[in-house]
């Protein structure tokens, strides 16, 4: 399976990763190889197999509806590149 450079560019854009032309070429080759390797699984007929969501036959742990967190804006905002009062500040996002 071969991934072309346009596909790499699209995936990079969705992931918000900027690639140089050279990186894009390299990524196309590398991603193609990875897909080829994984494609070996196509040799097995899995049409009657349900996707496996978890290897453990257990139910998820649920939390009770109790307020147990919050009230610590300083912690939340500590890594903010910029803040205004208790808000995060980000470059203008226009609708």
């Amino acid at each position: 399976m071969s991934i072309d450079q346009a596909t790499v560019a699209r995936i990079a854009a969705l992931a918000r990763i900027r690639l140089t032309d050279a990186q894009r070429e390299a990524a196309a080759v590398e991603l193609s190889r990875i897909l080829d390797w994984v494609a070996q699984l196509d040799e097995v007929d899995t049409s009657a197999v349900e996707p496996l969501r978890s290897v453990m036959p257990i139910s998820p742990t649920l939390r009770e509806d109790i307020v147990s967190d919050g009230g610590r804006p300083e912690d939340v905002l500590r890594n903010a590149p910029q803040r205004s009062g208790d808000y995060f500040v980000v470059p203008k996002v226009v609708e």
């Binding site: 910029q82 205004s84 808000y87 995060f88 500040v89 980000v90 470059p91 203008k92 609708e95």
Partner: peptide
């Protein structure tokens, strides 16, 4: 997202 508080920035409340 609050877009109208700043000219050049958007404020975020989570």
């Amino acid at each position: 997202s609050l877009h109208d508080q700043h000219d050049a920035a958007t404020l975020i409340d989570l």
